[in-house]
Amino acid sequence: MDFINKKRMPVELAHHKVEEVTYLVDQLKVRGLMMTPHKEVKRIVIYLRGGKGQVGRVRAGRLLQFADINTLVIGPYYRGNNGSEGKDEFYGNDLHDVTEAIRLLNRSYPNAFIHMVGFSRGGLQGLLTFQDLPITSYIIWGGVSNIHLMYEERVDLRGMLRRMIGHPRKHSERYEKRYAINQISATSPPILIVHGGQDHQVGIHQAYYLANQLEQRGAVFRTYYQMKEGHVPKPFALKHTLHTVFQWMSDVEQGHIKDDYDED
C-alpha cells in the first residue's frame, strides 16, 4: 500500500516537492508533511514532532533543516492532529503512525538510509518504535526518554497526562507500556543524544538517564550536549547542532562513528 493521497503544498523549493500526504493506519486516515527531492532519494529522515495539537506542529521550516538534494524528509502529524483521523493517545496506538510511514517509504526506497529524529515528545515516540524497523540511526533531540521523569518534571502537564494515560500509580501498567529502555540492547541501531543544558521543557537529566541506560546495555551511542542552550538552540548554536547531526548520519552510513560529539 502507498500513500492514498498527496496534496501539493504552496511551498516553493528549488530541490524538493512539498506535499501533505495521507496514509492508512489502523483503518484511520493519518496525515503528514513530506519533502521529496527531485533527484534520487539516498537518505530518508523521519521527523517525530513534539507537543500536542497545535503546539509543536510539523512545519516546513523544521523539516527543511534536514533536507539536502538527495534527502526525503517526512513529519507524521500523528492521529487526532491537524486533520488526521482518530485520537492522539500519547505513545499509544499513535506509535503505529510512525511505523507505518517508515514501512511505506522503505518499500518505495529500499536502498535509502533511514534516520529518525525525535524532538521533545517525539523522543520517546522514537525510542518506542525504532527497534524493529529498518532504521540506520536514531537522533533524540531535547527528547523525553522516560515518561515517569516527564510526569515528575512537568507539573503543568500532569493533568494532560492523567487524562490521556492515567495516574502513574493507579494505572502503572499503562506507564510500563511506555517504558522504552527495556526494549533497547547492544544490537539496537546507534543513537545520537542531543540536548541543551538550559532546557527547561525537557530537562537534561532525561539525556543523562538515557545515556546511562544505553551504556549499561552496551548500546552504540554518542552525546552532544550544549550546556548554554535551551530546548531549541539559538541560531549560532543551531548551526553547530545541525552540522553534528549531518556528520553523525554520514558517519553511521559509512560504517564509522566518531567519538568527538561532546561539547562543554
Rank of each mutant, 00 (worst) to 15 (best):
R169M: 07
S172V: 12
T187H: 14
Y179A: 09
L214H: 09
P235M: 07
Y225R: 10
S145A: 14
Y179W: 00
E215V: 10
H231M: 07
L161D: 01
H200M: 10
P168C: 05
H200V: 12
Y138P: 02
K239C: 06
R158K: 14
L210Y: 09
L157R: 08
K177I: 01
A237P: 01
V232A: 07
S188L: 04
E153I: 06
M164E: 10
L238T: 05
G142F: 04
R169I: 05
V202M: 03
G203L: 03
S145R: 11
G218Y: 07
D199P: 04
G203I: 01
R174M: 08
R163Y: 03
T223N: 08
S188N: 05
I181A: 08
I184S: 02
H195N: 07
A207L: 12
E215W: 15
M160E: 09
A186H: 01
H148K: 12
Q201D: 13
Q226G: 02
N146S: 15
K177V: 01
M160V: 11
E152V: 03
R174K: 12
N212Q: 15
G218M: 06
S145T: 15
P233A: 11
P235Y: 06
H171W: 09
A219W: 03
W141K: 11
W141P: 00
E152S: 13
I165P: 00
V155N: 06
P190A: 04
F221A: 00
M227K: 14
L192S: 04
E215K: 13
Y224D: 06
G218C: 10
R162S: 05
G230L: 08
H240W: 10
Y151C: 04
Y179H: 03
D156R: 14
V144A: 07
Y151H: 02
D199Y: 05
S137L: 11
V220K: 14
R169S: 02
K228E: 14
R158G: 02
R158D: 00
L149A: 13
R154C: 05
R217V: 11
V202G: 00
R222D: 07
G203A: 10
K239M: 10
F221Y: 14
A237F: 03
V202P: 00
Y225N: 06
G159M: 09
V194N: 02
E152C: 09
G196C: 10
Y175Q: 05
L192Q: 05
R169D: 11
G143I: 09
I181S: 02
V220D: 05
Y179M: 04
Q201G: 12
E176Q: 12
M227S: 11
S185W: 00
T223M: 15
M164W: 04
R174P: 00
E173W: 07
E152Y: 06
M164D: 11
R158N: 09
I191K: 00
Q198H: 13
G230D: 11
G203H: 09
G159R: 08
Q206H: 15
E152F: 08
P190T: 08
E153T: 11
F221T: 00
Y208W: 14
Y225P: 02
E153K: 08
M164C: 02
W141Y: 15
S137V: 12
Q226S: 13
